[in-house]
Design a binder for these strands. Sequence first.
DNA 1: CAAATAGTGTCTCTGAGACAATATTTG
DNA 2: CAAATATTGTCTCAGAGACACTATTTG
Lengths: 226, 226
Amino acid sequence: MDYPVFAVTVDLVVLTVRDGGLHVLLVRRGLEPHLDRWALPGGFVHADEELAAAARRELAEETGLAEPGGHLEQLASYGAPDRDPRGRVVTIAYLALVPDLPIPTAGTDAAEAEWRPVGALGLAFDHDRILADGVERARSKLEYTPLAAAFCPPEFTIAALRQVYEAVWGESLDPRNFHRKATTTPGFVSPTGGTTEGEPGRPAQLFRRGDATLLNPPILRRAHGA
Amino acid sequence: MDYPVFAVTVDLVVLTVRDGGLHVLLVRRGLEPHLDRWALPGGFVHADEELAAAARRELAEETGLAEPGGHLEQLASYGAPDRDPRGRVVTIAYLALVPDLPIPTAGTDAAEAEWRPVGALGLAFDHDRILADGVERARSKLEYTPLAAAFCPPEFTIAALRQVYEAVWGESLDPRNFHRKATTTPGFVSPTGGTTEGEPGRPAQLFRRGDATLLNPPILRRAHGA
DNA sequence: CAAATAGTGTCTCTGAGACAATATTTG
DNA sequence: CAAATATTGTCTCAGAGACACTATTTG
């Protein structure tokens, strides 16, 4: 049995919501190829390592984020023969949704790391495409899963949750209808009993994630084209 | 730069609807490991080949199905360190939805190929898991895309389309409500002008796929648990 | 005509969205 | 009290599902 040889990497689309917009974590490359260009964090999978474990390791290693109550899932794989000048490299992309965190620390093979608003960013390799796929996955997952809460700290208000939807979808939602929908969809959120303090306006109840894995009924965007 | 070496394969979850049920295409392995066991069709990606091209090649090669108007999309990747006794092998699984076709021909490295109703099948490698993921993907894609038509021949009746939904979801649908929904959802199907002949009962209009890529409104299953 | 299947009409209920109204804070 | 934000209530409309009814074929 003989067959071609590949390298396998994981790349991470790490998304958060800050300043009312969706941001992605980028690193400036400290090595060739694409030295000094911005890219998604990632790296080679070790010889005896699970793919998901490699993704978690890179997240911690390269960014200093140690599984902060967010969400990590496999996104897709990319393996065009010419996508990496070093040779035949297939990458398994993972999508992470995390709360807004202190600016991450640069790690081993990244010169710098920073949050950047999502968009056409001119990234290294095929990372613009991977990012676009990750953003679209996140947008659609907010519809039918409770994952919006992965962008929030452990306790959050309904307004904060709504702002996540608004930032990720790029559209504004009626606070009153959203409140009813979030609080009546079974298993989406559960009240902690606490409230906010010191903010202007009526204090808001605090909630934590509910136990549903699927929202029923879902929370749908306005018709979004193909 | 040094890094571990991997082999990369593609595996195919090829689904069709026949005899009122969802079936998957399996091959009996003609080589070690798992000689003579049933498995998903698949094989090594060539040295200079796109992943999707490898999936199409395997589909044609191993099964004799030459892109018959169905649908092919990437499903997910599987790379547990011990999933293949030959060494470190990562597989990129693809999902194909095809019309019911004449029994496929056995190909180069498969001793036999056959359609089997989906379920717990005791397949080689981690293929039971891959199959389960593929079936779940197909079930959920019928909700918000027009992909049910990928299981049908180029021209089909609304009843045939409904039977696809019933087979894939394993539940029965009201023919009258389904008819209205399929014909009024924009871009789902478009009438060819033709009708069936020689069948008992009133002749049915024939339709082909519409041009929508997303169904709006979607066609939802009854609440399906997590 | 009887059986079979296609297709339409109608009613009811649920949930989405618009938006008025009320509640409870800070300054 | 004014401003700000949270939360509840009400109305209307679209779409899902139940199901009666009509249409058009084969045998």
